[in-house]
Amino acid sequence: MNEFSVEVHHGGKFLSDPIRYEGVAINYFDGNEQDCWPAQELRNMVEKLGYMSYGKLWYRRPMVSLEDGGLRPVTIDNDDLAMGMAKAV
């Protein structure tokens, strides 16, 4: 079983020149199963962080900078996008 960790930066905003995210908090979620990672897991993370709603969720592909196109959208309503995020690790 392949497990991965998620580092969540939240409570901030994206800035440009250069593109970056300035957040207030960082939380970690360990022990995620790469082969079976449904969007429900993202919903659980968002709820554990205390958010009742959200604008957009983004993730950065490992080893790819924001400037080089590493930023990808993900949603808590789509298992395929969630699995795409898990497989990127």
Rank of each mutant, 00 (worst) to 15 (best):
G23C: 05
K13G: 11
M83K: 13
D80N: 13
P38D: 03
F4I: 07
A88G: 12
P62A: 07
V6G: 00
W37Y: 12
A86L: 03
L49Q: 04
M45T: 04
H10T: 03
E22R: 10
G31Y: 01
S16T: 07
L49S: 02
G23M: 06
A88E: 14
L42F: 00
N44E: 09
P38Q: 05
M83F: 06
S65W: 01
Y21I: 03
G12N: 01
D79H: 10
E67L: 14
G12R: 00
D17W: 02
M85Q: 00
F4T: 02
L66H: 08
V64G: 03
V6T: 00
N78L: 07
L49I: 09
H10C: 02
E67S: 15
Q40M: 12
S16L: 08
P38C: 07
P62F: 01
D80Q: 15
Q34C: 12
D77H: 14
L15W: 03
E3I: 14
R60L: 10
L57V: 11
V89R: 05
V74D: 00
Y21A: 01
L66F: 11
K13W: 02
G55R: 07
K48E: 11
G31R: 05
F4V: 06
R72W: 02
G69Y: 05
A25N: 15
A25Y: 08
R60I: 10
V89E: 04
I19S: 02
L15D: 09
V24H: 08
D35L: 12
V46Y: 01
D80T: 15
K87P: 05
M83L: 13
G31N: 14
G69P: 09
N44W: 01
S5A: 15
D30L: 13
V24T: 14
R20M: 01
P62D: 06
P73N: 10
I26C: 06
I26V: 15
P38M: 05
W58I: 06
A88K: 07
D77F: 11
K48D: 09
N2F: 05
Y21F: 08
D35G: 12
N2K: 13
G31C: 09
H9D: 11
K13I: 06
I76R: 03
E41C: 11
D77I: 07
E7P: 01
E33I: 15
R43S: 13
P73E: 08
F14M: 05
